[in-house]
């Protein structure tokens, strides 16, 4: 077995665009669920809207990459309004059902051949990198050391991703310690109580949906930034993977989503490298290499179950809070 490759790939996933994209989406979900108590099961839709909004702005309308980012964010705000106005009056579990359906609608719209000209339907979108790479301040070449050796473009994606994650963390940290964040956490506990204290609960929930949605769309952009937009990515399981990352780190924490996303991808990469290698080496003789690839998702599911049962507050969550979980 090639341990060097296995561990190299695993270490590399620490700052891969996928990890950073998941981290951003999980931060958005933390705003939705961890702080505002909104059971959003449609985070994949926000990521899809981010990725498609970015790619279509560039490919169809010929805009520069930063304008694509702004348009993607604006689209996510619009989606929050369309999704939120009818559904935010619903109680938690109903919101989950509606958001999961909305996410599927969004995905199927992007997949549909009706808009093939703009969305590329089943083929997705690619080849939108020119503008982003032009703005790369790094000179051509390969940088880094050990497993973290990437091209200038590879680094540029990661730098933008890390900056966005840092910015998102800063905003969430600043806003959650403010009276605004206090109202939001109050709504999570009991929205009628907050209403009786003269706060416009609907407006706060909408603001939280928009804020988290913008982070979700940025996550979608970073995820698609180095490669392509593929409609097969934005399926319901993406939502559950982001949820796993969030719950792993701690839903109502600032750094939890980032830690969770990193751990999720490190473990995923490790398993996807090590399991087939074990099969090839004859240690897991009862399965094929492709079965081994599926096994890792089974293990992720088991991990999620164990996590929710034994440590529902996540790794960074406050143990004290758990004492009072109903």
């Amino acid at each position: 077995m090639d341990w060097l490759t296995i561990f190299g790939n695993t270490a590399s996933s620490l700052i891969s665009p996928a990890t950073l994209g998941y981290a951003l989406a999980a931060i958005g979900l933390a705003v939705h669920f961890g702080f505002a108590g909104l059971l959003n099961m449609g985070i994949a839709a926000y990521m899809a809207i981010g990725a498609y909004g970015y790619a279509i702005s560039i490919l169809t309308f010929g805009l520069p990459w930063w304008a694509g980012v702004l348009i993607a964010m604006a689209c996510s705000v619009l989606f929050s309004l369309v999704l939120g106005i009818p559904t935010l009056r619903l109680r938690g579990d109903y919101l989950a059902i509606v958001t999961i359906a909305a996410a599927e609608i969004v995905r199927l719209l992007f997949l549909s051949t009706t808009f093939d000209e703009y969305t590329g339907s089943a083929d997705g979108l690619s080849g939108y990198h020119a503008s982003f790479r032009e703005s790369n301040p790094l000179p051509e070449g390969t940088y880094g050391f050990g497993p973290w050796e990437y091209t200038a473009n590879g680094w540029w994606v990661r730098i933008v991703g890390i900056l966005l994650v840092a910015l998102a963390l800063l905003i969430v940290w600043a806003i959650m310690r403010s009276p605004w964040g206090r109202v939001l956490r109050g709504i999570r506990e009991d929205e009628d109580a907050v209403r009786s204290l003269g706060k416009n609960v609907f407006s706060y929930k909408m603001q939280a949906l928009i804020l988290g949605g913008v982070f979700g769309s940025l996550g979608g952009i970073v995820y698609a930034l180095p490669s392509s937009v593929n409609p097969g990515v934005y399926v319901t399981s993406l939502t559950f993977f982001v949820w796993t990352a969030l719950l792993l780190g701690g839903a109502a924490t600032i750094f939890g989503p980032v830690l969770g996303a990193v751990l999720y991808w490190v473990v995923q990469t490790l398993l996807s490298n090590i399991l087939p290698a074990l099969v090839t080496a004859g240690i897991l003789p009862f399965m094929s290499t492709s079965q081994a690839q599926t096994l890792r998702f089974i293990l992720v599911g088991v991990a999620l179950m164990l996590l929710v049962i034994f440590r529902p507050q996540g790794i960074l969550g406050n143990k004290k809070e758990l004492t009072f979980v109903k």
Partner: peptide, 10 residues
């Protein structure tokens, strides 16, 4: 409220 609504995790 009749059923007290304190905000538990605040």
């Amino acid at each position: 409220f009749q059923l007290t609504k304190s905000l538990g995790l605040l």
